[in-house]
Structure formats: C-alpha cells, structure tokens
C-alpha cells in the first residue's frame, strides 16, 4: 500500500519533470514504415519519455489529429499530405534538402518548419578550409533547383574570404560545366542536390576531380564513402539533439526553417592520402567547426 502510494508520487513527479505543460502527442508521419524509422521513433521516445509519441503511416490511411498534436514529417509523402491540411498543425519536416524544396515549389505554410538535410554552406566551406588551408577558389556546380542557394554560398565564401566559381549543370550527361569548374577552382564543394550528385554522376564527378587532383567536399556521408574527401553530416543522434530544444519550445516559436545544429565530420583517409593531405582528424575537425559556430 505504501509502495503504491510512493509510486504514484514518483509517477506524478516524473510527469511534472518531463511533460511539457502544453503536452500533447507527437505524431511521426511517413508513407511507410522501415527499420530505420522504427529505430528513430524508439530513440525519440527514449529521449523524451514524457512525450506520447505515435507512429502513423499514410499507407494505413489519414491520421486522426487531436488538437495540440505536433507532427514530425519523415518523408516527402508526409510533407505533401501536410501541405494539403487546412488546420496547419505544427509540423517539423525532416529529410528534405533545400534543392528538393525548391523543386517542389514549397509554399510558405504557417506552422511548418523545414529542417534542412543539407549541411550548411558555411560549415562545409570552413571544413574545406580546415582540410586545405591554402585554397582560394571554391568551385560549385548548381542545378536549376539549387540556383536559389547561390546567394547563401556566395555570402559564406565572402565571410571566409574565398572566391566562389559557379557553373550551372543542367544536363548531367554533358560534363563541360564540371570540367570548367574544376579548371577554375581549387576544390569542388558539392551541393546536396540529388539531380547533380547521385549514383549516376558520382563516378564522373569523383574521377574527374581526382584526375585533376581536386578534392570534393560533401555533399553527404555516402558520397564521402564513394570518394569525396570529407563532409559534415548529421545522423540520427544529431537530429535527436537538434530536435530536442524544438520539442521543448512552444511550436509558435519554431522557425520556418533550420539547418541541423548538431553534426559530425566524416572523411575518406585513402583519398586524403592520395591527395597528399594529412589524415583528417574527424573529432578535432568537428570540435573546431563547433567552436566556430559557437562564436557569436
């Protein structure tokens, strides 16, 4: 009897500690489910034991929303569904790149926060500079859907006193823009644009760059494994850490978009060695980048 009373107090205390005052459900929405998705849901629940986290797939049908529910949209189908909702439930859209958002002509929607899957340009350029301090000219290929990012890249380059050389690459079967940008730059910075950087183009981009002894930075961890020199990237742990403060805030304070604030650095040591560079010290690079970003 005493134990049951005690346990009730503990349960109440933990509720007070862990449940936000505006407590409601977090609905993880996706088209289908997958082991990765389930792992993410479990990790999120573990991180926020006080939150009621539900998973729903659009395959099962329309989700039923309660007032105050907040959504985490985990794929494009979920985002598209959300765009069709009139009630505008507060939503965090994950796994969407800036170029894809441009391609989808995403309107500005109240209550929708886009959490970019791309590493931010300044972070990537700083990483490039840390790996190759002497570089002066950053080469950038962009597509029709990433052209709106140029200004941001330009600003990042200016902030680091780097020269940005850009080339529009509309037809991945025509290498001329790639050749030109490699000729006019010291390093190729890859935008997270799947129209440009994909399994079809990886071979051409990486072999052409390497034959000119130019490093490629970015756009993703997978590309580094294929032959890019390095990239910053955010994995599940980083996204959980990025999401945590948002989930604690009232959704009215959510920004309309956000880059991941937590990240890691991945590098390709054999490529670094072949380019005559020091073996990248990933934790050290990570620390240096974080320190830079921590500065006001």
């Amino acid at each position: 009897m005493r134990n049951s009373w005690m346990s009730k107090i503990i349960a109440l205390a933990s509720l007070l500690c862990c449940l936000p005052l505006w407590a409601a459900d977090i609905l993880l929405l996706s088209q289908t489910t997958s082991p990765g998705l389930n792992t993410f849901a479990e990790a999120l629940q573990q991180q926020h034991p006080g939150l009621r986290i539900r998973q729903h797939t659009l395959q099962e049908g329309e989700p039923s929303l309660k007032p105050g529910d907040r959504l985490i949209l985990l794929d494009e189908a979920a985002l598209t569904w959300r765009l069709g909702q009139r009630q505008n439930p507060p939503s965090l859209a994950l796994r969407i790149s800036r170029s894809r958002a441009e391609q989808l002509h995403l309107p500005s929607v109240p209550g929708l926060t886009l959490l970019w899957s791309d590493p931010p340009p300044l972070r990537q350029m700083r990483l490039a500079r840390l790996l190759q301090p002497g570089i002066q000219r950053i080469g950038l290929l962009y597509g029709r859907h990433s052209s709106t990012l140029l200004e941001e890249y330009q600003q990042a380059a200016q902030a680091l006193d780097l020269e940005l050389t850009t080339q529009l690459w509309e037809n991945p079967r025509d290498n001329r823009p790639l050749q030109q940008v490699l000729q006019d730059s010291d390093l190729l910075l890859a935008i997270d644009d799947s129209q440009l950087y994909n399994s079809q183009t990886a071979k051409t981009i990486l072999l052409s760059s390497y034959s000119r002894q130019r490093a490629v930075i970015g756009p993703s961890a997978a590309f580094v494994k294929a032959g890019s020199l390095a990239s910053s990237y955010s994995d599940q742990a980083d996204w959980l850490a990025t999401l945590a403060p948002l989930l604690e805030q009232p959704s009215q304070q959510w920004p309309s978009s956000l880059y991941p604030q937590h990240f890691k650095v991945i590098s390709n040591r054999p490529v670094a060695r072949a380019l005559g560079l020091a073996p990248p010290d990933e934790p050290q690079l990570q620390r240096l980048l974080r320190d830079h970003e921590a500065q006001p």
């Binding site: 997958s34 082991p35 990765g36 998705l37 792992t39 993410f40 985990l74 994950l94 796994r95 899957s117 994909n198 399994s199 990886a202 071979k203 990486l206 072999l207 390497y210 993703s220 961890a221 997978a222 590309f223 494994k225 294929a226 032959g227 990237y233 955010s234 994995d235 599940q236 980083d238 996204w239 390709n268 054999p270 490529v271 072949a274």
Partner: peptide, 15 residues
Amino acid sequence: QDDLFASDSELPSVL
C-alpha cells in the same frame, strides 16, 4: 546501417 539520416545509399565506391 539503419540510420534514417545517414545510412548508405546506393552510391558505388568510386575512388
């Protein structure tokens, strides 16, 4: 491998 955000895609190993 199951990381929703940084899992390997179908990129071939080039270099």
